[in-house]
């Protein structure tokens, strides 16, 4: 699953895990730098998501055949 497909919650979760891993001691410098870069990318991605989000609002209505369908809320 690429980062783009992940939900905001998953991204935030990964970010928080990365930061606490980094703040733990037993990590070599190479891994720390790798983790750090990854975390910075995640922060950027989360920010972009927040900034670019346009709220999508739908309603669910039941059609004649009893199926529930999504429609944009006017």
């Amino acid at each position: 699953m690429s980062k783009k497909d992940k939900s905001f919650e998953v991204l935030m979760g990964e970010l928080e895990t990365l930061v606490s891993t980094l703040e733990g001691e037993d990590l070599n410098l190479d891994d720390a730098i790798k983790h750090n870069e990854e975390a910075l990318q995640l922060i950027k991605l989360c920010r972009e998501r927040l900034d670019s989000a346009r709220q999508k609002i739908d309603k669910l209505v039941q059609s004649a055949d009893g199926e529930w369908q999504k429609q944009p809320l006017d």
Binding site: R49, L50, A53, Q55, I57, D58, K59, L60, K70, L73
Partner: peptide, 14 residues
Amino acid sequence: LSRRFPLAELLLIP
């Protein structure tokens, strides 16, 4: 909801 967290989709059952 739009002001605080536009990331979330809203789904209404009227």
